[in-house]
Every structure is written in C-alpha cells, then in structure tokens.
C-alpha cells in the first residue's frame, strides 16, 4: 500500500474558554478529542456529523489554520503539525480548501483574476505573466466559467458561480488534497447538483483526494468512497460507503440515517427518533459520549468509553465502530445485521 496523502493520528483540539478581567482560562471546549483517519490518493473520505461535532475543526486543524492541542497531521509523509511556518508554506500547496459560504469565501475587493492568481504567484507556479494568464484562463475552463469573466468582481456572480470560483482558486495551487468544508451545503438543489458533478469530474480528471466535510448524508453517499461519522469530537464509525449505508454498526449512524427525510411519500421506514439534544462539548458525558441519547445504552456504556475497532461486516473489510454492543452475542446485538435498507426505505 502506498503512503496515504493525508494521515491524522489522535488529533485533539481544545479551545480554552477565557473569562474575567485578566482573561484567565476557566475551562476547555473539547471540540476535537482524539480523531484518527487517513486518505489515499484520489480517494474521497467524508466526515459527517451534526453541528458542533467538530468536523469543521478537524478540517481547519488539518489545514493548520490554528495550532493543534495534540496529535499528528502527516501530509505526503511529512509531519506538518509542528512544522515552522516558513517550512510549512510551500507544503500548503498540496492541500487546498473550499468553504461553505460562497459569499464570504471570496474577498469582495479582488477581481476574479487576482483571486485565482494569488496561489499561482505564491507558489511560483508560473514563470511569467503570459503563463500566469494562461493558467488563470485554464482554471476558468476547468470550472466551466467563461474566460472573459476574470475581470469581474465576486458580487457580480451568483452563489453557484462563486462556488466555482472558490473551487478554481483551490485548483490553482495544483493540490493533491482538497478539503471541502460543507462546500455545497449553502447552495440551492439544482445548483448543488452542478457543483457536485463538477467536483466529481475534477476528482476523476486530476486524481484529487477529497476530505468532504458535510452534514448532508444523501450528498455524502453520492460523492464519497469512505465515510467517517463524528459525534461530540470523536469518530464513532468509519466504513466504506456501501457498508456504512447498508449496515451501520453504531447506533448514532443508524439514527442519523433514519432521520434524513427521503423524497418518497408514504415510504415505510424504520424510524429511530433520538431523544434530547447533543450534550455540550465543554462537559462531554463520561463513558461513551453517545450514551445519553442512545436507545440501546446499558450500564457499561455509562462508565467505559468504547474504543474504535474492527467489526464484523458481511459486505467487506475496513469497517470500524466504537460501540460496546459488538461485544454482546450476535442475537443480543441490535446492530448485528444489515438494517440499512429498512432504515432508508430502499427497495
């Protein structure tokens, strides 16, 4: 197996809570609390979960937009989490980002040409002005925007077009990995489809690896190769797409799948409606973090935190989950079978 493009080991990010006149630390938000995964070349890994689960923090930590509390981030075999910023800067070329909000992700006071030229100049990817101009034009072609639009300002474009510009900016650095932080979530349905198709085409064409951070499970299923499900700062399950959707092995994944409304009136689905709300990441529950809402929780879940480990899955290898239920005999384990089809009302 070749080295993965990105490897994240036991990543932790705790944000201090400051209060009082002198700004002393009174506690921590355990936004990300021990997350590990890797992404192979050309692969899409999706990070799913609800707001506040820490998925966007993982994306920003990988990009090193801030320093992490603990753990390792390894890009193309090199640790970047403790790299001095001078050494890191050229490494940044290999991973780029596309953000959610197409309006605030482009500097309103820069023309499209300058937005796209910035990474090309920073990384010295063009020898002269003519090559720069050619590269910018090429990027516009790649994201299917007219070349003569490079002289325009961001506010002259619609949301979908702005997102294309954001993608073009990410491609300008010729990266190996693009982190898509809710990249299609703010878009209308019909525009969303355009951008999803564009991302898939680009991935195929350029062999890009994608870290696709999203809360939209239908889009994730459509886009991804593997899925990691996050809850309260931890990954609770990782599996290849088909295994995850057909046979979820964590009660949270199961509930998440069952909660997505499907555009199929009268579909007979098995509904699992979770009680209550996500607990605060300032004071996460002891034991399994999901036990306060889990329909199957038993005594052990309240005291012992389950580790992430391989689980039996008829559909294939590489399915890991963090749940004590898998220690029970199969007939007592509600997650033993493949319930995906029943939950998703899929014929």
């Amino acid at each position: 197996m070749s080295t993965p493009v990105l490897q994240v080991n036991d990543l932790k990010k705790h944000f201090p809570i400051r209060a009082g006149f002198f700004g002393g630390t009174t506690g921590y938000v355990y936004a990300v609390d021990g997350v590990s995964f890797d992404i192979a070349k050309g692969e899409t890994l999706s990070l799913v979960g609800e707001s506040g689960c820490g998925k966007s923090t993982v994306g920003k930590a990988v990009l090193r937009l801030f320093d992490i509390t603990d753990g390792q981030v390894i890009l193309d075999g090199q640790r970047i989490d403790d790299m001095p910023s001078g050494t890191l800067r050229p490494m940044r070329r290999r991973m780029q980002v596309v953000f959610q909000d197409p309006f605030s992700s482009l500097n309103p006071r820069m023309r499209v040409r300058d937005i796209l030229a910035e990474p090309i100049r920073n990384f010295g990817l063009a020898k002269d002005a003519a090559e720069l101009e050619a590269k910018v034009a090429g990027l516009m072609d790649k994201v299917r925007l007219p070349r003569d639009a490079v002289g325009r300002w961001p506010h002259e474009f619609s949301g979908g077009q702005r997102q294309r510009i954001g993608i073009a900016r990410a491609l300008a650095a010729e990266p190996d990995l693009i982190i898509c932080d809710e990249a299609v979530s703010a878009l209308d349905v019909s525009v969303k489809a355009q951008i999803v198709n564009l991302l898939q085409d680009l991935q195929r064409e350029l062999g890009l690896a994608l870290l696709f951070i999203s809360h939209d499970l239908a889009i994730v299923e459509h886009m991804t190769h593997r899925v990691a499900v996050m809850y309260l700062g931890k990954i609770v399950e990782v599996a290849p797409k088909r295994s995850l959707f057909a046979a979820p092995k964590h009660p949270y994944t199961e509930a998440l799948l069952s909660a997505v409304p499907v555009p199929e009136p009268g579909a007979a689905r098995e509904r699992i409606i979770l009680k209550g709300d996500v607990p605060s990441p300032i004071n996460p529950p002891k034991g399994c973090r999901f036990h306060t809402r889990c329909p199957y929780a038993f005594d052990r879940c309240r005291v012992e935190e389950p580790p992430l480990r391989p689980v039996a899955d008829a559909l294939g290898e590489g399915h890991v989950a963090a749940c004590h239920l898998h220690d029970l005999p199969a007939e007592q384990n509600p997650l033993a079978g493949s319930k995906g089809a029943a939950i998703l009302a899929h014929a």
Partner: peptide
C-alpha cells in the same frame, strides 16, 4: 472570514494578507 483562511491556505504571507485582504 473564510477568504482570509483561504488566503492562508494558499500560502499568502501575513504582511500580504494584511495589505491585500
């Protein structure tokens, strides 16, 4: 702002970020 984060990810140096963004 996300565009400042994007500029950091695009390898822009801090002085340039201040002046340009």
């Amino acid at each position: 702002q996300p565009y400042v984060d994007a500029a950091v990810a695009a390898g822009t140096r801090t002085p340039v970020i201040i002046l340009r963004h």
